[in-house]
C-alpha cells in the first residue's frame, strides 16, 4: 500500500476544496455587489483575491511535490494532472470575479439603468455551472460533469443575445454609454467563468474516464459513456 502517496493526495484535496470554497464565495459576492449596488462587498472580493493567488501557488507546489516524490499512475496521476489544470481555472475565475467587482464599483457611481439583457439569468446559470462542476469534482461524477459541459451552450446563447440588447440600448440612451459598456464587460466575464467551469468539468471527466473530451465535438470523437473492454476472453 502506498500510504504516503494517498495521505499526500488527501492533503492536496483539502487544499483544493478550501480554494474552491473561497473562489465560489468571491464569485457570489461579486455578483451581489452589482445587484445590491454594494461597494463593500466588491472591495471584499478584491481584497480576498490575494488569498486565492496564494492558495493557487500552494496547490501547484503540492502537485509538483507529489509528482516528483511518488510518480503516481492511473487514477492518482489523472487526478493530479486534472488538479494542476483546474487550479489554473480556479485562479482565473477568481480574477474574473475581481473584474466583476471592479465594474460593480464603477456602476455604483452611475445612475441605475435598465439592464438590456438577462443579467440575473446569466449570473445564476454561470454560478450554477461552477457549483455543479465542483460537485462533479467532489463526487467524481461523470454524468454531472457532462451536464455542465452541455450548459455552456445556454450561457453562450445568452451572451450572444446580450450584444444585440446592449447595442440597441446604446442607440436609444447614448448618455449611459459607460454603464452599458461596463455591463457588456460583466456579461463577457460571466461567460468566461462558465468556460472555466466547463474546463473543470472536462478535467473531472478525464479523471474518471481517462479520456480527453476537450474539443470532442470538433473532432467528432466523443467517448461513449462507458467504454466496453476492448476484447474479453473467457478463461
Amino acid at each position: 500500500m502506498m500510504i504516503h502517496l494517498h495521505k499526500e493526495i488527501e492533503n492536496l484535496k483539502k487544499r483544493l476544496l478550501s480554494l474552491c470554497a473561497v473562489v465560489e464565495d468571491n464569485l457570489r459576492q461579486s455578483v451581489q455587489a452589482i445587484t445590491e449596488r454594494d461597494d463593500r462587498r466588491a472591495e471584499q472580493v478584491i481584497g480576498r483575491d490575494l488569498e486565492i493567488d496564494q492558495a493557487e501557488i500552494e496547490v501547484e507546489e503540492e502537485c509538483l511535490k507529489i509528482l516528483a516524490l511518488y510518480q503516481p499512475v492511473a487514477i492518482d496521476l489523472r487526478f493530479l494532472v486534472a488538479v494542476l489544470k483546474m487550479n489554473n481555472d480556479l485562479e482565473r475565475i477568481g480574477d474574473l470575479a475581481v473584474n466583476i467587482a471592479q465594474r460593480a464599483i464603477f456602476l455604483n457611481r452611475e445612475l441605475p439603468i435598465e439592464v438590456p439583457f438577462d443579467l440575473n439569468g446569466l449570473s445564476e446559470k454561470t454560478q450554477t455551472m461552477f457549483r455543479l462542476s465542483l460537485d462533479a469534482l467532489v463526487n467524481l461524477d461523470a454524468s454531472l460533469a457532462r451536464k455542465v459541459c452541455a450548459m455552456d451552450d445556454e450561457v453562450d446563447a445568452i451572451n450572444r443575445a446580450m450584444y444585440d440588447g446592449v447595442k440597441a440600448m446604446i442607440r436609444r440612451q447614448p448618455e449611459h454609454l459607460d454603464a452599458l459598456i461596463a455591463l457588456l464587460s460583466i456579461s463577457r466575464y460571466l461567460e468566461r467563468i462558465a468556460d472555466h467551469a466547463t474546463n473543470i468539468a472536462e478535467d473531472v471527466l478525464y479523471t474518471v474516464q481517462g479520456a480527453i473530451v476537450r474539443h470532442a465535438r470538433e473532432f467528432k470523437r466523443l467517448p461513449p459513456e462507458d467504454a466496453p473492454p476492448a476484447s474479453v476472453r473467457r478463461d
Binding site: I9, K13, K14, L16, L17, S18, C20, A21, E24, D25, I75, D76, F79, T128, R131, L132, L134, D135, L137, V138, N139, L140, V208
Partner: peptide, 16 residues
C-alpha cells in the same frame, strides 16, 4: 447542490 466547504471530503475511488 450545496456550497462547498473546506471540510468536504473528496473520494478518489472510481465507481464500483
Amino acid at each position: 447542490m450545496n456550497t462547498l466547504t473546506a471540510t468536504d471530503t473528496l473520494t478518489l475511488e472510481p465507481p464500483a
